[in-house]
Design a protein around this nucleic acid. Structure first.
Lengths: 213, 213
DNA sequence: CCTTGTGAAAACTTTCACAGCT
DNA sequence: AGCTGTGAAAGTTTTCACAAGG
């Protein structure tokens, strides 16, 4: 099955590709060059069948009877996900959560680099955090086009989330990782991924009680 | 359909219940007492059909031709999710992310209270952050049983995540909200929910490029 | 006439099982 | 003999459409 076919790829498949990538990096560090689907999914909550099915949407990447070349597969997955070269992102909202995200090492590991941070607090503007200058929102458009930024992390308070998100879209942002506990109402051209810790905790409460039964 | 029936409730239904709760709180603030399914899902990416189907797993909570009583439905949902009374949680790892989570206002809104924080850095132990004392891990068991804690937030570095998670389970924790980018290998009795910002960003990269096509 | 609750159909995702390559 | 790739089957979730209640 080729990329060019019009077959819909399950959304969950994409999320799992990122997990496979993490797993492959680990195997690579262990100096393994060829691995099987079960080695890759060994410490993931995914079956090797699922893994092979997921990959099959993108073509034949392994060798029957042998397995997968680690470096080759990493390259392939990075390309599919679009993280094969540096992705520049901006951060909106440099409060406690925003500051923590600025310092989060997990982003750099996957080729993401925060190139600028924005806030509306005059006290913060002009200062640096983690080596990144905090700018006024008025400079957003310029930064986005200069660095070719397509993704943003939104970490402002709930009240201002919608308006800041609109500003992001105006400036050309195409994907938003939203930490504010509100449902953003934006153009269909922008992809929004919500990370809502309150919602997660509620789901966790429910499931953790069920497991016992 | 009654709770007692052995019908499997979709996991996504549970996540959406939390969203409905958020929406209902807002409607309640607007002094609405009776609302329809479409009012509730109006600003959510969920259809009113989906909403009614989701609720149908838990019985008949609305009145045909009329709608739902806001306060009654809020109470119902809180009970289903298990957030109708205060839920005490602990935090493991008071680094930048952990500190930000300590200050996160979204938890209190939904009856979650962080009762203690743990870290292995001797410099931090004994100090207070956001009014919460940072304790040594050795005191975890005592705190968990004294406060009747069942849930934990794990915000330690990837290297120590597995061992700290095991400690949490030992102390009686039944649900873990895991911010470390590793797959935790734990007893089936513990429910783990992963919040992996790196994975999310990669998925976002993929989807935000696709939307354009 | 409006809105809920829900079977039934449709859509989607995962698991199975095995043909085929090394 | 071992492992991949993939149709087909099974399982799950969402959407549809409408009967029944206010």
């Amino acid at each position: 099955m080729r990329k060019t076919d019009k077959i819909r790829i399950p959304q969950e498949t994409i999320r799992r590709l990122a997990l496979y990538l993490r797993s492959l990096r680990k195997l690579s560090q262990q100096n393994l060059t060829i691995v099987s689907s079960s080695q890759i999914t060994n410490h993931l909550n995914v079956t090797s069948d699922q893994f092979r099915k997921d990959l099959s949407y993108f073509g034949s990447l392994g060798k029957p009877g042998v397995g997968y070349r680690v470096d080759e597969l990493i390259e392939h997955l990075e390309k599919i996900l679009g993280v094969d070269s540096e992705r520049r992102i901006i951060l909106a909202g440099v409060g406690k959560l925003g500051s923590a995200l600025l310092a989060y090492p997990g982003f750099l590991n996957f080729n993401f680099r925060i190139v600028a941070a924005f806030d509306n607090d005059p006290v913060k503007i002009g200062k640096k955090r983690e080596g990144i200058r905090i700018e006024d929102i008025s400079r957003m458009r310029e930064v986005v086009s200069r660095f070719g930024v397509r993704l943003a992390i939104l970490a402002v308070p709930a009240e201002s989330a919608q308006s800041v998100a609109e500003k992001l879209v105006e400036c050309g942002i195409r994907g938003i990782l939203n930490f504010a506990p509100v449902n953003l109402d934006l153009s269909q051209k922008v992809y929004v991924l919500d990370v809502d810790m309150g919602t997660e905790l509620m789901a966790l409460t429910y499931f953790s009680r069920r497991v016992l039964l």
